[in-house]
Design a protein around this nucleic acid. Structure first.
Lengths: 205, 205
DNA sequence: AAGTTGTTTAACCATATGGTTAACTAATGG
DNA sequence: CCATTAGTTAACCATATGGTTAAACAACTT
């Protein structure tokens, strides 16, 4: 393989900024700390990204950018509902496992600046999950699953996947989980979540 | 009833601080804004609470304080496992509905300062959920529910209850929910969550 | 080699911020 | 009624912070 190209200042800054914004939040993050961690003069941050807010926006977009469209695509695919639940859970859990910082990042941002974050997450006229919701309605109407709204179902899935990552420090402090133990527990959830969701969709006992 | 006693400065400060800490986070919150919103001189904040951090600690303890012990009590009670799931879901959802700001508050705090928040949430030698975990193990062993660890089950419940409140702004911005519509949706979850969890505990299809 | 452009740096600046001080007023109680 | 304490205030302080500037440097063009 070719020698790793030295990362550009821009990338150094973005990586450092992402780490610092995660640890401290938007207001808690210090431009100086970002600069230090990137090994770069503070003025460079402004040279490349004008202001703290702009830098933050770029960091957010870069972090979220890739995965959301894929997720929406999965949800709107032609696949069977149950298969879809497995696919989405798997993909989502994988993605977050590779970016454990994202959930806090997003939840915090969403709550402090809903419209901006919404625009970042659900980029330009994303499909409206028409098909997924319709699919749920049909399954209910056909008596294949118990009555539930598509929204509730989606929220259930997302909750079960995302929340544990928000509670990660609790796993560590309260239950004494190491980094690896936590990862293993999350891996276990790759089966647990769709099992629970699908099992929970069966018609009443 | 007696005329509402004028709230003391201390309470005025705590209420204002709670609101501001919620909106801006620990670092984003400004002592001046807290003072203004409490209608009180800034020096008073330090008079009553020495420092920003101390004030924050008191706010957190006050907000979390009451409910956690009750929750633990429910989890460790003698009740049947399924009944317990209903009780916990109901109580927890009620409590959070009355304090919709708490989840973000805690999740954010937990991630930025795990040990302090853990100490606040799980006050002095709280029971270790021995009984609840054992109860789950027994139910699994007896073949009354599918195999699952007590921790996973607990996490499932908490996830389903708490996460939607973290995503509240998304309900509003993305799905156009009003404050009332959101409350109604959460009310619906009081049945949805235990139904899903319990249904999802049944032995495989 | 001299211009030209993009990149990097140290030194600054204006302002915001958490915290302190010293003086003043309202209670309390002996 | 006076003294001691609790409560409250405006003015102040040291520092941190986001952001700017002017000059130096590097790389490329001609």
């Amino acid at each position: 393989m070719p020698a790793q190209a030295k990362p550009t200042s821009e990338v150094l800054i973005l990586d450092a900024a992402q780490a610092v914004f995660l640890e401290r939040g938007l207001t808690g993050a210090r431009m100086q700390e970002i600069a230090d961690r990137a090994g770069i003069n503070k003025a460079m941050l402004h040279y490349y990204f004008r202001s703290k807010e702009k830098l933050f926006e770029v960091v957010v977009s870069r972090a979220i950018g890739g995965a959301m469209p894929q997720l929406f695509e999965l949800l709107e695919s032609e696949a069977d509902l149950f298969a879809k639940i497995y696919q989405v859970s798997s993909f989502y859990l994988d993605f977050i496992s590779r970016n454990t910082f994202l959930p806090l990042f997003i939840v915090d941002g969403i709550n402090r600046n809903p419209q901006f974050f919404f625009a970042s997450v659900v980029q330009t006229n994303q499909p409206r999950l028409q098909r997924f919701f319709q699919q749920v309605e049909e399954a209910v109407a056909a008596g294949r699953i118990r009555p539930i709204s598509g929204l509730q179902l989606l929220i259930n899935i997302v909750s079960l996947i995302v929340f544990p990552f928000l509670a990660k420090p609790l796993y560590q402090v309260a239950a004494g989980f190491s980094e690896e133990a936590f990862a293993a527990e999350m891996a276990r959830r790759r089966a647990e979540v769709p099992d629970l969701v699908i099992n929970g969709l069966q018609l009443g006992i």
